[in-house]
Design a protein around this nucleic acid. Structure first.
Lengths: 216, 216
DNA sequence: AATGCACTAGTACGCATGTGCTAGTGGAGA
DNA sequence: TCTCCACTAGCACATGCGTACTAGTGCATT
């Protein structure tokens, strides 16, 4: 921890939630009292910090209109030398693995304890981050690999035909998987499955199925 | 602010996100240095604090398996005398109005500034809280009232028939509204609409749409 | 070798969904 | 008054969706 390259000089904290961002900032300050820490609010804030060149990037972030992997790649492209920690609420191990394979160095759930958050931001690429990854229960634990791929696409609003195209299998086969997913989630329709699998955005830790938001 | 009844003795902070909860705790401490403040993690934590009898309740909370209004009513029933502030990410003014009509005293977005959060927790039932309500853009701004009611039910995974039953109108009429909503959100299927309207949960502050994921 | 399971692909059937029409009512505003 | 618009209700048609079958392949375990 006291090696030269594991001690970031510049830390960028990017998150749209003001209070959470502040808390992350404080935590980063606690971990690295000497570092210069900046905050960025959303995509625009991130764009405004292109010259900051942080060593460590703590971010809850998706490129507008793009998916997780694309966003991860974009981040890596923008910050090729930074240690990028995604602090978010992705509940799917598969997506986490995907972003970890595409530019993001570490992932921590927003529900994680301080300890885990600190561990993530003090870890470096040389160290083990497996322990830092996801610490939330995955409701899809009982699903097969294919079923998870299908539900991942389903919650994007994709039709069976589209899912089939993506996975390069028959729409008939997709229906098999969808059907199994519905049974697993104990719902009747794909929309209900999407809602249940997606969470509602209001309180990721507490199950629910009412309402929400989000635009485009 | 210095009247006797506006100064809470006991404050309960309930939120599943540990760091955010801590930050809320700190903020509450800043607002009311003398108060006894407790934290609760999720539904279970809330249940464990039934004897605490807080004057002020800062909560991001839904009853498991129940909707916003039911949760609000439950909260009010559990804490009949508390000043209940919902700190969450509900983006729909209508749902906010509904919970405000059913037990919750005030709502603040998680994206709000400290100032707004402080304002909400220092407000009392006698004061104006209109200014404290929602400060996030509602992607459904252009929708009619009925359309919002429909999308609210749609994102619960309800079928047209179920929506019709709830709103006490014909399923044919529901289809009219659903169709309008799909056009408005620029999607082809109700599932895609639900996803788009629900957000993806990964980064509530940054718009997106191509992808998503999410557990519960 | 045999069993189990995931994955694949198909058919058939029934209901749900989404669109495009027509049409009536009531309220707000010019 | 006349117009605009939200809301209501229906019909027709095409497509999507979900379930219940059958069936074959490949892999891992016993």
């Amino acid at each position: 921890m006291e090696t030269d390259n594991s001690m970031p000089d510049r830390i960028l904290v990017a998150d749209g939630q003001h209070l959470f961002r502040t808390a992350l900032h404080d935590l980063a300050r606690k971990a690295y009292p000497l570092a210069e820490i900046r905050e960025a609010d959303g995509f625009e804030g991130l764009m405004a910090c292109r010259d900051f060149n942080p060593d460590l990037l703590l971010v809850d972030f998706y490129c507008p209109h793009y998916d997780a992997v694309t966003s991860a790649k974009w981040l890596r492209g923008e910050y090729p030398a930074s240690y990028i920690v995604l602090v978010s609420t992705v509940p799917d191990q598969k997506v986490v693995d995907n972003v970890l394979d595409n530019g993001v160095d570490a992932y921590v759930s927003k529900f994680a304890e301080e300890r885990a958050l600190l561990a993530a931001m003090t870890a470096t690429a040389n160290e083990t981050l497996n322990e830092v990854r996801i610490d939330e229960k995955d409701p899809r634990g009982g699903m097969t690999g294919r079923q998870r791929e299908v539900i991942d696409l389903l919650v994007q609003g994709k039709s069976n035909k589209e899912i089939a195209r993506v996975l390069k299998i028959s729409p008939f086969t997709v229906r098999i998987h969808v059907s199994a997913v519905l049974r697993y989630l104990d719902v009747d329709t794909r929309t209900a499955a999407a809602v249940k699998a997606t969470g509602n955005g209001i309180s990721q830790s507490h199950v629910l199925q009412r309402d929400s938001e989000r635009g485009r």
